[in-house]
C-alpha cells in the first residue's frame, strides 16, 4: 500500500482555510530527497537597537496605549539544543484589536504610537525577549459573530529551523471558538504563554513562551 502523509484539517468557520487547504493527503518525501526539503538561511538581517520594544516607536517617543507586557522565552530544538542567533519576528494587534497593516479593515482605532512590529535575534542560549502591548481581540467573522482571541504572531528562522506560530493567553475570551485552536486540539496548551510577575521592570506582567522547533537532526519518520 502506498504510504501517504497527513490530511490537513480545515479550521472550522475559517473561509480562507476552506479555500486554501489541500484536500488530498500530503505526500511522503522520498528518503533520497529528504535533505533537499530543508531550507537553510545563512544570512540574518541587521537588527537595530530597540526593535524588540514595540511599546515605543523610538526611545524618546510616548508609550503606546494599553498594558505593556513582556514576552520572553527560549527556543530549542526537539532534542533540547538552543537555537542560537535565530531571527524572531513578532507582530500583534493594538489594544483595540486593530493591526496597522494596510489590509486590516477592522473598525477599531489605530494607535499612532504602535506599529505592532518587532524583531530580535536569539542569544547564545536561544533566548529572546520583547516588550509589546497586550493585544485586543477582534471580530473576524461579523456574519456569525466569531472573534479571534488575543494572540501574538511569531516567525522564527535560523539555520535549518523554521516555524511560524502564535502565542495565546490562558483562558482568554474567545479561545474556545478559534479555528486554529480547534485544529490544535489537545496540543493547544503548548501555544499558551505562562504568566509571570514583573515587579522590577516597566511592564504590567510577563509571559514566558518557550518554543520547540523540529531541528535538522530530527528523523522524519518516527
Amino acid at each position: 500500500m502506498e504510504k501517504l502523509g497527513r490530511i490537513l484539517r480545515i479550521g472550522p468557520t475559517d473561509n480562507t482555510s476552506n479555500e486554501r487547504t489541500p484536500r488530498e493527503n500530503l505526500r511522503i518525501i522520498p528518503p533520497a530527497a529528504r535533505d533537499s526539503f530543508l531550507p537553510y538561511s545563512r544570512v540574518q538581517p541587521g537588527i537595530r537597537m530597540g526593535e524588540n520594544d514595540l511599546t515605543r516607536l523610538a526611545p524618546q517617543m510616548p508609550r503606546a496605549e494599553g498594558d505593556a507586557i513582556e514576552m520572553s522565552g527560549q527556543i530549542l530544538d526537539d532534542i533540547g539544543q538552543p537555537l542560537r542567533h535565530a531571527l524572531v519576528e513578532i507582530w500583534n494587534a493594538n489594544k483595540y484589536g486593530k493591526y496597522a497593516h494596510d489590509l486590516d479593515g477592522y473598525d477599531a482605532p489605530l494607535d499612532p504610537n504602535f506599529s505592532g512590529l518587532g524583531r530580535t535575534l536569539t542569544d547564545e542560549e536561544g533566548r529572546y525577549k520583547f516588550w509589546t502591548i497586550d493585544p485586543g481581540c477582534y471580530l473576524a467573522r461579523p456574519d456569525i459573530n466569531r472573534w479571534r482571541p488575543k494572540h501574538i504572531h511569531l516567525s522564527i528562522r535560523g539555520g535549518a529551523s523554521r516555524l511560524i506560530t502564535q502565542m495565546y493567553f490562558k483562558d482568554a475570551e474567545h479561545n474556545d471558538t478559534d479555528p486554529m485552536r480547534i485544529v490544535m486540539a489537545e496540543d493547544f496548551h503548548l501555544n499558551i504563554g505562562k504568566k509571570y510577575e514583573t515587579p522590577d521592570i516597566d511592564v504590567e506582567r510577563g509571559f514566558k513562551f518557550d518554543i520547540v522547533i523540529r531541528g535538522k537532526n530530527s528523523t522524519f519518520f518516527e
Binding site: I164, D187, V212
Partner: peptide
Amino acid sequence: RLPLTNEDTV
C-alpha cells in the same frame, strides 16, 4: 523528544 510547539497560520 520535547513536544513541538504547534505551527499556526501566519
